[in-house]
């Protein structure tokens, strides 16, 4: 399979061509946000640990908004290997760091919750939230990449991501997505999270496709003023 061989050959160069530092810093900060207070024995209730884990997920996903940055986009965008594959590889580069960051944070949170807190931390559902936030960041970045063919994407995608996540975090009352672990709506809200994950994934895939041809509009009738060298008008130009 050519596709498989291309993918395999691309892994190394893609790894080196992708911006790693925001990713690593994001994952590290995310892990530290939970690991540090957990190791320091900070006395928090289960809602606070859940809140810290959610913030960790948001920070870890921020780094992914920079992975599609490509200074040579002008060259790479017209090569046969599809945009979807190039993007998928770059996102795949982001996955291990983000997953490790989340695992570290989740493990620390779990340890504390098991030993100190009576109510459950509900880690599977929080992991669903984290995965959704990650995929949402990917979808936003891929969408911004369509609008910025010059390849400097993160500089716009990161603020857009922050705004979107901030808006989700601020959703009031019944519309709230980040509900307390003790909330009666927990299961209901996590069905919405699941739905959001599916929507974000589909959006990321759709947006990663090659841009289709632009919308067709009214055909401007402009006189053809081309002059062929054998045109008798050649000598009549003023």
């Amino acid at each position: 399979m050519t596709g498989l061989r291309i993918t395999r050959s691309l892994v190394g160069p893609t790894l080196r061509a992708t911006r790693q530092i925001p990713l690593l810093v994001g994952a590290t900060l995310a892990a530290a946000l939970v690991v540090a207070p957990a190791a320091g024995g900070t006395d928090l209730d289960v809602g606070s640990w859940a809140g810290l884990l959610r913030f960790a997920a948001m920070i870890a996903a921020l780094g992914v908004t920079f992975v599609l940055d490509d200074p040579s986009a002008a060259t790479t965008s017209v090569l046969p290997v599809s945009r979807a594959l190039r993007y998928a590889l770059r996102v795949a580069v982001a996955v291990p760091a983000s997953v490790l960051g989340w695992l570290a944070a989740a493990t620390a949170g779990h340890q504390v919750a098991v030993s100190h807190v009576s109510t459950p931390l509900r880690l599977p559902a929080l992991t669903l939230e984290a995965a959704t936030i990650f995929v949402l960041a990917v979808a936003i970045t891929v969408g911004v990449a369509r609008l910025r063919p010059d390849g400097s994407i993160g500089v716009v995608a990161a603020p857009v991501y922050l705004i979107v996540v901030g808006a989700l975090y601020a959703l009031p009352g019944r519309a709230a997505l980040f509900v307390a672990t003790t909330s009666a709506q927990w299961d209901e809200v996590h069905q919405i999270w699941g739905l959001l994950l599916i929507v974000s994934t589909s959006a990321a895939f759709l947006l990663a496709r090659e841009p289709a041809s632009r919308r067709r509009r009214g055909h401007p009738r402009v006189g053809n003023q081309t002059i062929r060298s054998d045109d008798p008008r050649v000598n009549a130009i003023s």
Partner: peptide
């Protein structure tokens, strides 16, 4: 890298 993207596997 460009060669790989040009499917020279």
């Amino acid at each position: 890298y460009v060669a790989i993207l040009k499917e020279l596997t």
